[in-house]
């Protein structure tokens, strides 16, 4: 309900404020052509924001469960940066949006498994080591991204690559939404229907095996879909920080640890928070503000509060 109300409020807000009645007229097909055009663009953007908000948050929650590590997130594991490297390489080769998606997904998967390999080499099971491995991979991918930018054509390629790094929904249009949206929807639905199994996967490997499910297959399947969601999000709007890390914690502090309730809550909360952030991003000033700036200002204070509140039970 909150989400629907927010969608409507968000439709009204922007560089040209529109009234509630105009928004209703748009949905009933009676709006005049000028406001209808604005509302159509806004509606496409809002759908993209809602899907990415839900998807990135669920990806974060999934990583946190599978690695039983409250600090895991698409960004801290290096998946987001990896996916943007994949996207950038595809842009460099002037590929279509589909190839950008595939390339982002493959690079995201490669990054997450390299992160896991580094973590294994370190022979240390602490939560921080996994994040350290993620930061190492992220650093490497930043360098690769830097090299790609260096050789990119400054006229048009460089601009689109930089757009990816900052995180923005400015360039989302009906074509990119149609090609990426379904992947986000598939990923979201898959994780929602398999959410009970995430509870079991946060146990230790031996226990998972003795309760009768294959730890490797189940974990990798979840990692695959979480990475798919991250890569698809990166294709639509670039790298958006904090959402994937903070939202799962907010949801769990509201409905508890059980993913049967926490994961749907995460999806809705993520959609709401990103919608607020994006509405601010396109309404505050004449130009769109990069999204990560706003999610940072919202996410960091919330994360500090969560860290302090949850220090007793361990993150």
């Amino acid at each position: 309900m909150t989400l629907i109300a927010l969608v409507i409020v968000s439709m009204m807000m922007g560089r040209y404020d529109l009234s509630l009645s105009e928004v209703f007229k748009y949905f009933t097909g009676q709006a005049n052509s000028s406001s209808s055009l604005i509302l159509k663009l806004r509606f496409i953007r809002i759908i993209a924001v809602v899907l990415v908000g839900a998807g990135l948050s669920m990806a974060g929650a999934t990583f946190q469960s599978v690695f039983s590590n409250g600090l895991a997130s698409p960004n801290l594991l290096g998946v987001s940066t990896g996916a943007s490297v994949g996207a950038a390489i595809a842009i460099l080769n002037n590929k279509s949006i589909y190839w950008i998606e595939i390339s982002a997904f493959i690079a995201g998967i490669v990054t997450v498994f390299l992160t896991l390999m580094i973590n294994k080499l370190l022979h240390n099971e602490s939560n921080i080591t996994l994040i350290l491995s993620g930061i190492i991979m992220s650093g490497l991918m930043q360098s690769v991204l830097g090299s790609v930018k260096y050789i990119a054509d400054p006229e048009n390629q460089l601009q689109s690559i930089v757009y990816w790094e900052l995180g923005s929904f400015m360039k989302v249009d009906s074509q990119s939404l149609i090609s990426v949206g379904p992947i986000l929807i598939i990923g979201i639905i898959f994780l929602l229907v398999t959410r009970w199994r995430l509870n079991a996967l946060s146990l230790d490997t031996y226990t998972i095996k003795t309760i009768g499910i294959n730890p490797t297959i189940n974990r990798n399947l979840m990692i695959l879909f979480a990475t798919l969601l991250t890569a698809a999000s990166v294709c639509l709007c670039g790298v958006v920080g904090w959402i994937g890390l903070v939202v799962p914690h907010i949801s769990r502090s509201i409905v508890g640890e059980d993913n049967r309730y926490a994961l749907p809550m995460t999806a809705i909360t993520g959609a709401i928070l990103l919608l607020i952030a994006d509405t601010l991003a396109r309404s505050i000033s004449v130009n769109d503000i990069p999204l990560s700036i706003i999610t940072g200002f919202i996410g960091v204070p919330i994360f500090i509060v969560i860290l302090v509140r949850r220090r007793n039970i361990g993150i």
């Binding site: 039983s68 009970w196 079991a200 946060s202 309760i211 499910i213 640890e257 059980d258």
Partner: peptide, 15 residues
Amino acid sequence: KSNLTLFDYLLLGRT
């Protein structure tokens, strides 16, 4: 390490 409630934790045996 689990933060689940007792009931939800026991349910995992049914996975």
